[in-house]
């Protein structure tokens, strides 16, 4: 089953939304109607109708559940907020004048190269998969929430080889000021600025990131 639902393919997206609005479970007549209306998307619409139909059969249904603490910010919500702000900032930057060349050079002098900067979300996920760890752990790594002095050489080499960058560049990034990294601001309830004192040791980070026993052993063996 293949379904592309990208911004370049608005018509398919519209068709899928419309199909989902028309009936709880699409029937043969409805799907036939849509496929005739959008013959170029016949396969995608059929696949979508199948997903829609099976989802609608779920006895748990679409009933909205009551939320006790409706303003609770969970880690996933916090990261989605962070993603939103980053994206919004990027779009706003694109609209405004490009920053002078000198400024970026000055910043480069002050801030060590961030080896994770050029990874998009998909690449970041793949990076986690290659390491056989979860996103929580690699996010801690990226956001300098793990004390680099507690990392084994084997682990640092593994990361450096995978990215691939020189070991020193990676270490320079990891020992950099934590506040420069996109940490989950919403969880910081203190009046003081976040500092490196919140860093976990490598062992603690391995244990507190929801990794399986096997994944933990693999990392601690490095």
């Amino acid at each position: 089953m293949t379904m592309t639902f990208t911004t370049n393919n608005t018509t398919l997206q519209d068709a899928c939304y419309e199909l989902s609005l028309r009936k709880r479970i699409p029937d043969a007549d409805l799907l036939d109607e849509f496929v005739k209306h959008y013959p170029q998307f016949s396969t995608e619409l059929t696949d979508f109708a199948i997903s829609l139909a099976l989802d609608a059969l779920d006895p748990m249904g679409d009933v909205e559940e009551s939320i006790k603490d409706s303003k609770k910010v969970t880690p996933a919500v916090s990261r989605a907020m962070s993603h939103f702000h980053n994206l919004l900032h990027t779009f706003q930057q694109e609209k405004s004048e490009p920053a002078p060349e000198v400024k970026s050079v000055q910043n480069a002098d002050k801030e060590p190269t961030n080896p994770f900067k050029n990874l998009n979300r998909q690449e970041f996920r793949e990076f986690a998969k290659r390491l056989n760890v979860n996103l929580v752990f690699v996010t801690k790594l990226r956001d300098r929430q793990i004390d680099p002095s507690s990392m084994s050489n084997g682990f640092i080499e593994l990361i450096a080889n995978d990215l691939p960058i020189h070991k020193d560049v990676l270490v320079a990034h990891l020992v950099g000021a934590q506040s420069a990294a996109p940490i989950a601001r919403q969880f910081h309830k203190s009046d003081e600025k976040p500092s490196n004192s919140q860093q976990e040791s490598f062992t603690k980070a391995v244990k507190n990131s929801g990794l399986s026993d096997e994944q933990q052993k693999q990392l601690l063996r490095l």
Partner: peptide, 29 residues
């Protein structure tokens, strides 16, 4: 297997719709 990551990805992409909403005036997703 990694449902948490998928949920997080979907949430991020959904929040991204709002960020791009102002940017993309032609398509009111």
């Amino acid at each position: 297997t990694d449902k948490a990551s998928l949920r997080e990805d979907i949430l991020c992409e959904f929040s991204g719709l709002f960020a791009s909403d102002m940017n993309d005036k032609k398509v009111s997703k």
